[in-house]
Every structure is written in structure tokens, then in C-alpha cells.
Write a protein that binds this DNA or RNA. Sequence first.
DNA 1: ATTTTCACTTTCAATTTGGAATCAAAAATA
DNA 2: TATTTTTGATTCCAAATTGAAAGTGAAAAT
Lengths: 133, 133
Amino acid sequence: MSEDSFRSTCPISSCLDLYGDKWTLLVVRDLLYHGSRTFKDFLESDEHISSARLAERLKKLERLEALTKENHPTNKKVFIYKLTQKGKDLAPAIVELIAWGNKYLVEHVSEESKAFAKNLELNKEGVLKELMK
Amino acid sequence: MSEDSFRSTCPISSCLDLYGDKWTLLVVRDLLYHGSRTFKDFLESDEHISSARLAERLKKLERLEALTKENHPTNKKVFIYKLTQKGKDLAPAIVELIAWGNKYLVEHVSEESKAFAKNLELNKEGVLKELMK
DNA sequence: ATTTTCACTTTCAATTTGGAATCAAAAATA
DNA sequence: TATTTTTGATTCCAAATTGAAAGTGAAAAT
């Protein structure tokens, strides 16, 4: 499952080699929505990733250069994670998952998400620009 | 990992509950590119899915109504798999993975895929319409 | 000085995977 | 008609991955 053993030369397959699991894109999602996050912030998201899995995914995304890890300005034990351009460029794919989910999982998705998806329908470019800025 | 145990009400997380693995979207990919496929066709794709895993994924996608399974018109032991609208509607997300892969995995992706991604850049609507028809 | 917080790491049972072998029915071939 | 091959799976199992809980060590808060 490491990034240097792609199954084929297909870009879809290769993206799945990198991001095809249940957690990696949720880390990216949190950073798209919030700009920056700490380890604790990620742990507190609704899906409750285990700290072992979170540490693994953060390491992988850092190695892929999809995110960066910086020191907190005043607190020495806290680190700030942020997306790089490479990470931000996953936004278009993620946003299409939101659209699909909003269309086919209506009765299951939160009202907040529905409102977000509605904005997306009306102004995809604008929403994307805001997410990726 | 079943579709009736979502981790949260987030549409991204829920899509990953359904499609967040290394194989499911490759089955969808094959159907987007080829329109219809048999069990054997899927097995022969470059990534070489095992027949156990393929059977599992096909069952899941059928249960989700992302694809249908029909009898072959003349050969009783062959089945024809096709995407439903629900399955075709995954195309926009998949296509954005192609764009990402083409941008960040240049030296790894096939020339054929690069040509496809170039068309996508020039005419996303047209390419999508063709894929989803 | 002590307790709490934060960012991990360790451990390990349970789940999921990949790969090979096997199966039954239908089709093709001899 | 008999037998071989093809197709679409299923079975088996070792290896890899996951989830959950507990532990660690350093820094911050009390």
C-alpha cells in the first residue's frame, strides 16, 4: 500500500494506491474545512479515528508532501498541520463526493452538509476557490 | 464496512464508507470506460483483482444499485454488468482523480492516460457526458 | 510540586486482503 | 456423445491492516 508500488499506470488506480482507504481523505477534508489542525483536532472529528491510525496517515500525507507539519508559535508540544498545493488539489475530487453523497444519501446526511452541497451546486468554482485558498 | 453503518452524517465520510477501498472504484472505472463488462473482463484489467475480491465488490455495488447484472443474450453462463445512473454519477469524482494523478504522477502515468487527461482539461463537460452516456 | 494535556507509540485481537485451489454448470471441441 | 475448456464464482488460509485501549514522555497548567 505504499506510494512507490503502484498497481498500474492508470491515474485512478494510482490515486487509490495513495488515498484509497477510509481515513486519508478525511484528514484532507478536515484541513480543507479548517485551514489548519492539530493532532487533537483531528481526533475530535465525528468519525473518531484512532490515534495510531491518525499518526500513520499524517506521516504518509507529509511524506507525499500533501501536507506540512509546523511548530505551534507559542506551545512547544503542539504541531500545526496544513495542506500544500498538492493536498489542496484533492479538493475537486472531494467536492464531487459531497455532490454524490448529497444526491444519493439524502436521508442520512446532515442539514449542514446539505446546505454546503447546495452552495456547491449553485457556485462550484466559488466554493472550490474558497476551500483551496 | 457495510453500507448501513455510516461513521457520521458527513457525505464525504459516507462515500468513503461505501467506496473507500482500493478496488470498488476500479470496477466503476472499467464500466465507465467500456460500458459493459463480464466477470472475466474485470479480471483481465491491469491491476489483477482476485476473483474472490471481485465477486465481493460486484455484489456490494449491485446491492447499492450502482450497477446491474444481466444475462448474456446467447450464453447462459456469462453475465453482463452495467452502471446505473447512481453508478455513472461517480464519474465526476473519478475524473477529478484522473486530473490529480495527471498533475502529480506525471512520470508514472501512461501516455494513453495523459492524452485522456488532456482532453479532460480542454473539455471536461464533453468528456463527462461521453463517459456517462 | 503535582496534575493535566498533547502528540504520539505500543500492543494485540479482530477484520480484511491477496492468492491459489477448487467447484459446478454451460459451452466448445473431439 | 464424451471430454475438455471456459466462465463465474466460492473456499481456504497466511499475511497485512485495522480499531481500540493502554502506555509514554515532555511540556503546560494548576
